[in-house]
Computed example of a mutant assay.
Amino acid sequence: MLENDIVATHLQELRRGTVVLACLVTLRRPGYGYALLETLNAAGFAVDANTLYPLLRRLEKQGLLDSAWNTDETRPRKFYRTTADGEQLAGVLLADWNALHSSITDLDSTEGDPR
């Protein structure tokens, strides 16, 4: 039986690269960091704030996200939104993700095939 820490490590590796795609897709509608964190966690992406906020800053620096402060409420919040470049990258990443999913599904379905 596999040890829990081995499983956890591999699950983390599998999901690590998908967080960027999940952010770009989710932020097609403006959202602030904490709400994004909750949305991602609810969708099955176990991301913590110490990972998410630096990622958002990096994506913004790369021109994939825009941000604006909302000071209308009692607590100012920085809202992020996917840019046109971010949308283009999301399309490329999503197409690759779908191709990988299809390939893994094909490999899994040939598991019993004695080629």
Rank of each mutant, 00 (worst) to 15 (best):
D5A: 06
D72Y: 11
A22R: 05
F45H: 13
N98D: 10
R57C: 07
E111D: 13
A43I: 00
I104F: 06
R57I: 09
L11R: 09
D96F: 11
L55C: 11
A90H: 04
A95I: 11
E60N: 07
T39P: 00
A46F: 00
Y32I: 03
E60L: 07
T74P: 15
A35M: 08
M1I: 07
L100G: 06
D72T: 12
L56P: 06
D106S: 12
D66L: 05
G33T: 05
Q12S: 12
L14G: 02
L37A: 01
Y32F: 11
Y32Q: 07
A42H: 10
S109W: 10
P76Q: 09
N50G: 15
E73I: 09
D85H: 05
L59E: 01
A68M: 14
I6T: 08
L94I: 04
P114T: 10
A43N: 06
Y32C: 01
M1P: 10
D96K: 11
L55T: 13
V92N: 08
R75F: 14
L24Q: 00
Y80T: 00
R16I: 06
A95T: 15
D85A: 11
E3D: 12
R28I: 05
L107H: 09
N4R: 14
H10N: 05
R115M: 13
L65E: 01
A43M: 04
L37W: 02
T83N: 00
L56F: 14
E73C: 10
A46C: 08
N41M: 01
E60R: 06
G112M: 15
T26H: 02
S103H: 12
P54D: 10
I6R: 12
P30H: 10
H101V: 12
V7Q: 10
Q12I: 03
T26F: 01
D48Q: 14
F45I: 04
A84P: 00
L59M: 06
L100C: 08
A49Q: 15
R29Q: 01
E60I: 02
R57Q: 12
G44W: 05
L27D: 01
L94V: 05
L11C: 07
R58L: 12
C23A: 08
L93K: 03
L64N: 01
D48I: 13
E60Q: 10
I104Q: 02
T26R: 02
D5F: 11
L93Y: 01
L14C: 08
P54Q: 11
D72L: 13
T110A: 15
P54Y: 11
L27E: 01
G44Y: 04
P76W: 04
E3R: 13
L89P: 09
V7Y: 10
E13P: 02
R81L: 09
T51M: 12
S102Q: 14
M1K: 13
L52H: 04
P76A: 06
N98R: 08
L27I: 06
L52F: 11
E87D: 13
A22K: 00
D108C: 14
G63R: 02
L2C: 03
A49K: 15
T26K: 05
A43F: 04
Y32A: 01
E87C: 09
V19P: 02
R16H: 06
L27M: 03
N4P: 02
R15K: 13
K61H: 06
L11Q: 12
D48L: 12
A49N: 15
T82Y: 07
R77W: 14
Y53W: 15
L89R: 05
D106W: 04
L93W: 05
A90W: 00
N50D: 15
A49R: 15
A46D: 09
L24W: 01
R15G: 09
A8L: 04
Y53R: 14
L107K: 12
